[in-house]
Every structure is written in C-alpha cells, then in structure tokens.
Design a protein around this nucleic acid. Sequence first.
DNA 1: TGTACATCAGTGAACGCGCGTTCACTGATGTAC
DNA 2: TGTACATCAGTGAACGCGCGTTCACTGATGTAC
Lengths: 252, 252
Amino acid sequence: MISMEDVMTPPNASMTARERARAELTREIKDEAKRQLATAGADGLSLRAVARSLGMVSSALYRYFPSRDDLLTALIIDAYNSLGAAVEEAIAAGCGDDGNVTGGGARGQWAVACRRVRGWAREHPHEYALIYGSPVPGYRAPEATIGPASRVPVAFAGILRDAPGAVSAGAVSGGGQLGGALTEQAAALAAAIAADGLPGVGGDILVRAAIAWTQLFGMVSFELFGQFVGSFEPADAFFEHAVAEMASLVGL
Amino acid sequence: MISMEDVMTPPNASMTARERARAELTREIKDEAKRQLATAGADGLSLRAVARSLGMVSSALYRYFPSRDDLLTALIIDAYNSLGAAVEEAIAAGCGDDGNVTGGGARGQWAVACRRVRGWAREHPHEYALIYGSPVPGYRAPEATIGPASRVPVAFAGILRDAPGAVSAGAVSGGGQLGGALTEQAAALAAAIAADGLPGVGGDILVRAAIAWTQLFGMVSFELFGQFVGSFEPADAFFEHAVAEMASLVGL
DNA sequence: TGTACATCAGTGAACGCGCGTTCACTGATGTAC
DNA sequence: TGTACATCAGTGAACGCGCGTTCACTGATGTAC
C-alpha cells in the first residue's frame, strides 16, 4: 500500500537518492496527469497515456499509485489545497487577483476572496471541473478529501466572523430568523468547526457564508461551463456586480 | 443525414407504420441512453451498451443517430426542454413541488420556480449533470441547444418583470447602479430577447435574474455533487432559507 | 572500508475487455402505375 | 387490385484502437554487519 505521505512529501535534504527520486517522480506523474485532464477530462485520464508522456512503461506507475482512482484522489486533494491556499493568501494579503489593493475591511476581503476563486478557476479550469463539476461516475471521494475541501468555506466564514457587527447579525435582510432545522444544522456545524480549532464562528454566520459560497461557485461554474455564452460573457462586469450584491446580502 | 425532426417528432395518427416505428424506437433509444447515464455518466455512454439493452445490434443505431455525439445532443436538448417545461408549468400553476400552494405574487412564484428546479434536478440527477455539470471533453454543444437552454433564465426574468415595482427597481440594495459594461451587456441581451418575442424585460431585471439564477444553480449543484456532505445535508432547510434571502436580494 | 543481503524501480509481455464506426447483405415496407 | 421497383431497417462480421491491471524478471540502490 502507498501512504498519503508519498503523495504529499516534498523533496528534502535529508532524503536518500531513492527517496528524492521517488518524491520527484510522484510530482511529475501528477503534473503530467493534470496536463492530461485538460484534453481528456477526469474520465479520460489514462495511466497509459501519462506513462507514455513520461517515457515510462505503464506498469511502472503502479510503484507510485496503486490504481487509477488513487491518482485521481491525489489530484483532487492537490486541487482543493491549491485553491484553498490561494484564497487564504489572498485574504491575508488583502490583494486582488489583478494586484489592485481593495480597501481593507471585511467587505474588501470578501471581494478579494471572490476574485481569487474566480482567478484560480480560470487558471485551472480542469482542476476546477474535477472538484466542483459533476462527480466522476464510479468514483467515490475518500475521507481524506474532506479537510482540504473545507478550506474555502472556512476561509469565507472567517471573513464574516471578523466583520464588525457580525456577532449580532442573526437576521439578514429578507429571510428573517433561521428556521428550526437550519438552526440545528448550523449549530452542529459550528460545534464541529470549533472542535477543529477554529472557534468563534456562530451558526448564523455559517449559514450566510454558505449562501455566499454557493452563489460564488454558481457564477464561476456557469462562466467556466459555458452557461453565460450569449448573455453575460465576458463575465467580468457581471461578476463584480454580483459580488457587491452578495456582500450586502450576507451583511458586509 | 438525420434531421432534428427525427429527434423531436412524436407519434401521430397520420404516419405510416414505418414512421411510427421510427419515432417510437428513437424515443426508446433515448430513454435507454438516459438510463445508462445514471450508471456510467455522459462520458461512459456507449452506443453498444444501449443497443445491447434494446436487443439490437450496435450498427443498427446508426439508422437513428449518425454518431454518438448526436445522441448526446438529443439527450441534452431533451433535458433542457424537460426542465424548462417543468419550471414554466410550475410558475403558471403557482404550485410547489410538494403540492403546497404558495401564496400568489412574484415572491411566491419565485419560490415555486426554485423548488421546481431543485425537484427536477433531484428526480433527474444525471440529466442535470449532463447540462449543468462539467462539459464533456471533446464535445461541443451545437447551436440547437441554445434555445432550450434559455427557457429557465427567461422564465425567471418573467417573474421579475411581472413583479410590482419592477420597472423602477434599477438599483438593488447593496450594489448601486450597474456599471457601464454591465449596462451595455444587459441592454443588448434585453434587445435580443425582445427580438425573440418576449418584450418588456429591462436590462436591470435581467441582471437580477442572472444573479438569482446563478445562486439557485450553485445550491442545486452543490447539493447534487456532494459539496454539502457534512454540513447542510439534508439541504431542505438551507435551500428554503437561501431562496427567501435571494428573493429579497433581487427585489421581490 | 568492504562485503552480503534485502529492498525497490522499472521492463516488457500478456490477459481480457469494450469501444465507435464501416460495409455489404437480406428481407420487409412503401409507392407509382 | 395487382405488380415492379425503390426505399428503408436491421444483421453480422470486421477494422483498429486504447484501456487497467498482473506478473515474472533484471538491475540498481540502500543497509547491516
């Protein structure tokens, strides 16, 4: 069996030549696989084609990934982490995709985070499709993807938590108080997040973060998957407008 | 070549036996193909497997669809039309998925339309993935899909148009006036729609409809594609809450 | 420092599979007179 | 109403292709003494 460390470990001075070669080739295999996603999609990802591009024989890949699905899983985890890190860094730097400094404050952070998500998606459309597109039939994402997948929503919740006046913002403009079932789900989720070491996020904030999060990814998916063709394409102006509207909706 | 009429024509009394058989088998092929989408996804859709299930030899399908891509196109058009009709009917009837009559008015219509979209998607998850999921690599949707694809957004725009006070609602809560580029795109789109025979929809309304539309499909996609696992699942309560919030956002 | 053994990476052949599409064909259905 | 011909539906064999995965193997790298 091949452990997660094989997939994650970066090259390191204290490694043997064998270990260094292994880490490097593992990365090269994933890089080539990502390149192939672009032309064939997740379904068409072929171990044989990857091996061919790397000048290896296809059976050699089984030294690195025990099956095609494990390679897919590694790509999915990489994609979530890449997007998550990009968003976290953008929020921390308070800097947009285009280099524009957007005035501080939670509303500015919100805009910056949205732009970074869109920017990342446009830079890596096939990795985006891999994680936010239709599921690959017959493939079930293992537990290990859950953590990386939550980085973006958690980052969004963080923006809302740090917003002035967030604590008392139980009721948003139009929806009134949360319903009973939703309150329970949100509280359970807040507890789970607190147990993971990120306390201080109220359930109502999580609900608003989820609304913002779904809206944002709805827009990005529509743009990337071609639903805007013939209407709001290019989507830049629409995106900026919608981001501003959503900021107001979630109380920023 | 096989024309679109072959794909669309329903059985009819004035047809010859041959024509009736052809219409019926065309439908059966599509039905079986839809069933297979569920297990294999769009990429895995196989002419041979469809033929096998129908007790035919694979080459016989070429009498009905000139290639696998043409069959896919027919399925996509069917799916758009099925969803579009469901939403239009729900709005006209003012009745929700669950049979609840939601009080009249634009806000009630909005909720009913949203529930119907979600309901249809949950009833036909694989057809939903076909039209709103990641694009099938190597497949380019032909022009013929554009009309059916626009039925839902047009229906949403219709709700907003008929809302009291819609005409003067140029500025929504948080975003202020539309930017220049967005105003132009919206105006062009409004003109295109008017030319198609559905006049009276202002550009600002189209922008709001698009915001609502992306939010709605973002939620439905997240639910169907598994992004809510471990948080707002089941998504019913969250969905209802978000729909109410969005109604306010778009001025209903 | 040098040797003996264990571990690992990569090879090449093979297995068994399913796919889309073409083509010459047979037999049934439709049409024109 | 009956016959002659044209059109169409479905068959079965074949082409050429690529895939994931297994397995016994060779040679290089690492480790323990």
